[in-house]
Design a protein around this nucleic acid. Structure first.
Lengths: 133, 133
DNA sequence: CCACAATCAATGTATATACATCTATTGCGA
DNA sequence: TCGCAATAGATGTATATACATTGATTGTGG
């Protein structure tokens, strides 16, 4: 199962990133932009929880995204935390990327079929929940 | 979909690798050992095709595995190709890892349920096939 | 209030991963 | 057979990813 997921994950990532390459945006980065747009301000640890990603992994990715000016950070009341928000440039970049992303996705959805597509979304999230809770 | 798969992939990888850590074996490496045990001798490109992994990515991973003596390589008739086989030490390592791997997997399969488990295997492979063919 | 455990993120290190480019070979058409 | 396109990997570079360890801060029991 792990092997199957990793293989499909690689294939999907290559497919989607092909569409984002002209924008200089990677799949992980796109996902983070999207999450921040929906969630507003979150701490690095919370973001890691949402993505099932080690919080220290985010240190490196967020450093890159900050370099591009896509996110802003500030210290919260608990000064150990980094609280992250989408910057204006990040919003712009997300809006530029969305059409390309959606285009790849809708084409794939059609090929896979509505039924299978919905099952997959449901089942993958179910597995993630099982593992992380 | 890409985000869901990548998230689940991370969660699964952490779960399975936890079990392999005492053996110093990573998920990708385990998978390669398994594939070589089943497929016998294959070229680097063929292996990449089976795993939906860029052939040049394998250059680095195979270098590590060769360092451990888990695989052997030789040039084929076409001298551009690297033909790979499981070495004795790789077979030993695979057999040591299998119980731990299976233990994690059977526990997860029970939690997920037979129905969902089988659907997932089928659907993930279907998506991979769609993208890579 | 204070010592100490717990928590958050930063850093060091190793592997995974892909693409662009390069080198060596092969195959093929004239 | 010769020249050139195609192919298989190797290499340079950038990002993704996790874990172990560390530093800073917070919470808590005495």
């Amino acid at each position: 199962m792990c092997g199957s997921f990793r293989r499909t994950s690689r294939a999907l990532t290559q497919l989607y990133e092909q569409a984002l390459r002209p924008l200089g945006l990677r799949a992980t980065q796109f996902t983070i932009l999207q999450v921040l747009a929906l969630a507003g301000e979150v701490s690095q640890g919370q973001l890691g929880g949402m993505l099932a990603m080690d919080s220290t992994t985010l240190t490196r990715t967020l450093e890159i995204m900050g370099r591009h000016g896509w996110i802003t950070e500030r210290r919260g009341r608990d000064r150990r935390e980094r609280r992250l928000r989408l910057a204006k440039a990040g919003e712009v970049q997300l809006n530029r990327a969305l059409p390309a992303w959606e285009k790849v996705q809708s084409r794939l959805r059609r090929q896979v079929g509505e039924q299978a597509w919905n099952s997959l979304l449901h089942l993958t999230n179910q597995v993630t929940d099982l593992i992380t809770n």
